[in-house]
Write a protein that binds this DNA or RNA. Structure first.
Lengths: 217, 217
DNA sequence: TGTACATCAGTGAACGCGCGTTCACTGATGTAC
DNA sequence: TGTACATCAGTGAACGCGCGTTCACTGATGTAC
């Protein structure tokens, strides 16, 4: 029954990955260790060769979920046309595809209202993940008001969580579409009427704003 | 052991009220029927004289939570100075007090990321509650862009849920403060540059906007 | 390189626990006369 | 109004179930010689 070191390491990696998907899709409390191990084609007993407790798995799975989602967001940003990165990120984050594939998406909307009752280690990982999303928005909208950036992050997370929670597909779509449209426009605006401000590419902010307010498909 | 009809009705009412508070505070899955009955000073057995199942209690408690929170919001709006109602609602919704008293607050941020896994009856009650909050915002910001109103509702809910979830009190406060500041300003702005539009009070929108952008304490 | 032994990844049954739900029972309330 | 009986709100123990965790066991892997 013993497996090679490589196989064992692979088991551990797959357990964390599978857990991170199941937790995002169904919530931490609704997914048992048995569910995770069954998804690997294994029985529960083997779990404790790899993890000290369920809490340890949750903490690792949460970190993994943020790492994966962060990588996805980075690639969306990287492959966008110049000046279109913010619009591309909003288009992806507030898409039906993201709404309908929670398992591989951003863990924040999936966990936001249950993480308050989780142990501190998990809350810390979550908080770091929120800061990371905020950092992305700050980087992509350096000229926007700081208040607008925080409000935008709250709105992205709220809209996606609501789009998944609500029973009515038209309302769900409106949360995604309207929040995306609003913030694509609003984050393009410059901070305040300072004389002739320019971004790091030397473009005038009005040019950036115009790019970012093109109508979405 | 039998109680009078009035006492029995009171037991039922109190059970729904207590459950609605516990569910908002700790989440539906973390609160057992035993917890609710113990809070009434009763044992679990009596529960089924009043409710068919836990799901039935959850549905009623959820409806009750929305009714209570709606009444609170109505009274905030009603007691605000004319033209200040929207600012007052945002100030109350995105306050530390609301963040720290989930049990008596709006159920949407408490339940938003777990309601997707609940039965349809509960999702419907939740959806109606979301529509109700959106209706309040539409009434208080009739001149704002429709996209802005949806985005504002998503932002209010996201910001409060994040403020509770996050491990860092400074970041928590920023979500509340910045989201409140942003939307108090943004929802005061008029829809689009139409010639001389006036609201139902005959005031010019610019006047309303100026009122609603006064700095918050 | 081959052999003997220790290691340990995974099995599958068992553990105690809390859950939602059921049920025989109690005794005060409500009702029929 | 008073009495006899039926009703039923609440008790407390029991039920089956799934959970997280433990453990004796298995047998292939890893290692020492």
């Amino acid at each position: 029954m013993r497996r090679s070191r490589e196989e064992a390491a692979e088991t551990r990696r797959t357990a964390v990955e599978t857990a991170s998907k199941l937790y995002r899709e169904r919530g931490v409390d609704s997914v048992s260790i048995g569910d995770v191990m069954a998804a690997l084609g294994m029985t529960v007993g083997g779990f404790y060769r790899h993890f000290e407790s369920k809490e340890a798995l949750v903490a690792e799975a949460c970190a993994r979920a943020f790492a994966d989602a962060g990588r996805t967001e980075d690639s969306v940003v990287a492959s966008a046309d110049d000046g279109e990165a913010l619009a591309a990120l909003l288009r992806r984050y507030l898409s039906r595809a993201h709404r309908d594939t929670a398992a591989s998406g951003c863990p924040i909307p999936s966990l936001v209202s249950s993480v308050a009752h989780q142990p501190g280690s998990i809350r810390s990982t979550f908080t770091e993940g929120v800061r990371s999303l905020l950092g992305r928005i700050e980087k992509l909208a350096p000229e926007a008001e700081p208040e607008a950036r925080l409000a935008a992050v709250a709105g992205m997370i709220g809209a996606l969580a609501l789009a998944r929670a609500v029973n009515d597909e038209r309302l769900s779509d409106r949360f995604l579409h309207d929040t995306r449209t609003f913030w694509t426009r609003a984050l393009g605006k410059r901070r305040s009427p300072t004389p002739n401000p320019r971004d790091k590419h030397g473009r005038h902010p009005a040019t950036r704003a115009r790019h970012q307010t093109e109508p979405l498909p």
